[in-house]
Computed example of a mutant assay.
Amino acid sequence: MNVTDRIYVAGHKGLVGSAIMRALEQQGYSHLITRSSSELDLRDRQQVDDFFETEEIDYVFLAAAKVGGIAANNDYPADFIRDNLLIQTNVIDAAYRAKVQKLMFLGSTCIYPKYAPQPLKEEHLLTGELEPTNMPYAIAKIAGINMCQSYNRQYGTRFISVMPTNLYGPGDNFDLHTSHVLPALIRKFHEAKVQNQPVVEVWGTGNPKREFLHSDDLADACIYLMKNYEDSEIVNIGVGEDIAIKDLAGMIMEIVGYQGEISFNSSIPDGTPRKLVDVSKINALGWTAQTPLAEGLQELYRTFQTEFLVKQ
């Protein structure tokens, strides 16, 4: 992948896509192609076909997706499976027919079985039942992986698939209904501090463990793999360490400066008990994450204060 190649970042305004854009720009790539959802509806096959026919794209980072936390996945299951299947099917097929040099499909660690052995290895895919709370999204992502593998086998394409762990970073979603756990906790503790609330409710028991990867680290890994990885088999991207939600809440509580108490609402489902990815494969390829969680959390809280609150 040369700095003069035409690179399309699908989903460039999202958490992942914007991080990839920043990293590409910092590394000197000068022909970055983007379209907002209002300019190009990736669910519309004709629009996607026309776009690929006219833009002469060399590389694709497929980071566009409909995403959300447990509440959003539970409330809008049809939207999650339909929109994601449409987006990835249209882009992957159009990329093949337009003869792009290489495509990267970004999946998620929710593709792994709910009770898969820990840490999650790439070979655990399709070895057990999925977590029910995000099954429609996971099934769509599994279909995308298999589609890339099938096109490689039948058409000789160079489509690779990566599975990031839980992400956070600049451009994160702080909406309490649709966000993931980390930005939601930052907002909850901040608002409780400002409003002098004595207790902050955290969904679930606090016992599940999660791994958190900074979006800038993910972007660095994606570009590294686009340059150095050619296999059809999936690659995990993570830090190789996890933390219990109750401990994460404690870290955020301290960073925000909230002085009250934490109450865990065990009537809300926990989701998967643990989701730690095995990163030995990507480490062996020569890449490791660089951002410590405490440092990343402090940065995200500053972003919340300087960007999200200003827009409110």
Results as ranks from 00 to 15, higher is better:
Val60His: 05
Glu191Trp: 01
Ser30Ala: 12
Gly238Ser: 06
Ile255Asp: 06
Trp203Ala: 14
Thr89Ala: 13
Leu42Ala: 10
Ser215Cys: 09
Met147Ser: 12
Met226Thr: 04
Arg6Thr: 08
Ala23Ser: 14
Ala143Gln: 08
Asp49Arg: 08
Gly296Leu: 05
Ala143Asp: 04
Phe174Lys: 02
Ile139Met: 12
Gln27Ala: 13
Val256Tyr: 13
Ser232Trp: 03
Arg302Cys: 01
Val60Cys: 02
Ser108Cys: 07
Val16Gly: 02
Ala98Cys: 04
Thr4Pro: 00
Asp216Ser: 13
Gly156Ala: 14
Arg45Ser: 12
Lys193Arg: 14
Val3Asp: 05
Asp242His: 14
Leu309Cys: 02
Gln101Cys: 10
Gln26Cys: 04
Leu125Lys: 11
Leu126Met: 13
Met147Lys: 11
Val310Trp: 04
Tyr168Glu: 02
Cys222Asn: 07
Ile87Phe: 14
Ala138Lys: 03
Asn2Ser: 11
Ala244Tyr: 09
Cys110His: 05
Asp278Phe: 02
Arg187Asp: 10
Phe52Lys: 11
Gln118Trp: 01
Thr178Met: 09
Tyr59Asn: 09
Ala64Met: 02
Thr157Ile: 02
Gly271Thr: 00
Gln290Phe: 01
Lys99Val: 03
Tyr224Leu: 00
Phe159Lys: 05
Ala78Cys: 07
Arg45Pro: 03
Ala65Gly: 08
Asn152Cys: 15
Leu62Gly: 06
Leu130Val: 07
Asp172Ile: 03
Gly271Lys: 11
Gly68Gln: 09
Ile92Gln: 05
Glu201Ser: 08
Ser280Ile: 04
His124Asp: 02
Gly169Ile: 10
Leu120His: 02
Leu86Met: 09
Leu182Gln: 05
Gln46Arg: 05
Leu126Glu: 13
Arg43Gln: 15
Ala10Arg: 03
Ala98Ile: 05
Phe264Val: 10
Lys193Ala: 07
Ser150Glu: 12
Arg35Tyr: 10
